[in-house]
Amino acid sequence: MAKPKIATDWLAACAGCHMSLLDVDERLIELIKKVELTSSPITDLKVPPESGVDVGWLTGAVNSSDNEHVAKRMRARARIVVACGDCAVFGGVMRMRNYWPLQKALETAYIDTPSTVEGKIPGDPDIMVPQVDRALGEVIKVDVYVPGCPPSADLIFYVLNELAEGRIPQLDTPKLDYD
């Protein structure tokens, strides 16, 4: 049997969830014997193959036009989509931004901050458009939710290992007891 293919990507995230994945340490060597890592921020392949993958592993919230595009493309190409980390599961700290109009948040960052000289809000048509912050499940259908900020390396290893063996991981309380 061919090894299951995994693709990972990050949306509006801090990269901590991917660091927690690397924190499986030497077990990484064990893991890559069982699965084929395709696109990922830590490899040179960035876009999930058009032929599809078994598991699409997404971290981060959706808070721009580009995040939305990446999330939808992963959904289209992955059989099982995993939302990893509080940003993907709940929208993360950026959710607090939604208490203000987006325009206000941009003004604060690019005009009001004390070190900014002659500020303005970036608006070139070539760059992304910010959006209200959303959890992944508000944008695409998610199959497995793995909460935590970040989820512990042990939990990530358990989830990946279950998926690699063709099972849907069962997340009960003791496994989530890490914060």
């Binding site: 509006a12 808070n63 721009s64 580009d66 700290v93 950026m94 607090m96 931004r97 208490y99 203000w100 206000k104 948040a105 941009l106 604060t108 960052a109 009001d112 901050t113 070139d124 070539d126 760059i127 992304m128 910010p130």
Partner: peptide
């Protein structure tokens, strides 16, 4: 080099 992300910590920490 176009950097393409905005999260807004300066705002929501207020």
């Amino acid at each position: 080099l176009h950097v393409n992300e905005f999260r807004g910590f300066e705002q929501f920490c207020r």
